[in-house]
Simulated assay, not measured.
Amino acid sequence: MSNGSTLPRRALGRQLRKLRERAGLTQSAASRVAEISPQSYGRIEDGRVTKVMDLGLNALANVYNASDSERRLLLDLAQEIRASSPSGSGWWRAYDDAIAKGFDHYLALEEAANWVTSWQTAVVPGLLQTREYRRALTWATVPDSSPDETERILDVVMRRQDLLQRDDFRFEALLTEAVLGYGVGGSAVMEGQIKHLIERSEDSSVEIRIVPSEQDIPYGLNAGSFVLFSFPPLPTSKLQEPPVAYMEGLSGGLYMERASEVDKYSQEAQRIRHVALSASASRDLMLQVAKEQ
């Protein structure tokens, strides 16, 4: 895995929290058992980067009265963490200067996912943007960036799109028709962007569906734009990592992992699919809009 162990770390944290709470112990008590600081133990349960030793996990399994299968799962997840990314980094570490604070977590989720659904009401999602379209957006959102800084930001966006070449990756873009109508960068840039969407829609890994403006039922509009990440089972433990929902705002992104929260976005995505045009009808609409540019 190239995701810097994001998924197995989160899975290990959830499993330890479940066992600890079942045993009725505090994090401070658990940290003493594992012979690490309370802060370090807290980071483990939060799924953050912290050294995880089998000796400490076995000690915790003992005091938690874990079953053999529960102990094996803890050790398997720890092994996944060690094997997944020895350097603890992803390709985006080379672009730290061009990535907004906290966005590295988004990139790790995107890289680890095998299915991403993006519902966008105003802009083309990053995985489908042309360089010129993204440049216009960047000039508007980061007006003080130098030309070199802007190009670095664009390099990150283009590098992310390598995901679309992966055999095990599927990207579903659900867009309002308004996304095609905004004049980002001018008519020439929009014409190029829409033609790019049409080309990408022919890829087996990409599905683009448009919700027409005349749609009577405004599914998705109240929810705002969001992204859903779904993941394959972890290779060793076979644990199925639950999906994650993401919403972006001016002050930063919001990640939702609770099943009750994610289910709301999954259900909203399903409602949006019901009112969206088919992939072929969406392609016809994009061809029509491109001719009008």
Results as ranks from 00 to 15, higher is better:
P125Q: 07
P86R: 14
A94S: 12
D76G: 10
V123P: 09
E111D: 15
A136F: 01
Q129M: 03
D76E: 15
Q120S: 13
R93C: 11
Y106D: 05
E110S: 04
S118N: 15
T138N: 02
L127V: 01
Q120L: 03
W115T: 00
Q120C: 08
T138G: 02
I99V: 15
R131V: 00
S85G: 12
S84E: 15
L107G: 09
L128Q: 04
D104M: 06
Q120A: 09
F103W: 13
V116W: 02
L109N: 13
T141A: 06
K101V: 15
A140M: 06
G126K: 09
H105D: 12
G126S: 10
W92C: 02
E80Q: 09
I99H: 08
R134F: 12
S118D: 15
L137S: 01
V116N: 07
S145V: 13
S118H: 14
W92P: 04
T141P: 00
E111M: 05
R135I: 02
D76C: 05
V142L: 12
Q79K: 13
S145H: 04
D104Q: 10
R134Q: 15
T130A: 03
L77H: 08
R82M: 05
V123Y: 14
F103K: 00
G90I: 12
S118G: 02
D144W: 05
Y106W: 13
Y95R: 08
W115C: 06
L77N: 07
V142P: 00
A98V: 07
Q79H: 13
E70W: 08
I81L: 06
S87K: 15
A113H: 07
Y106Q: 04
W91G: 04
L77P: 08
L127K: 02
A113L: 02
V116M: 06
H105Y: 14
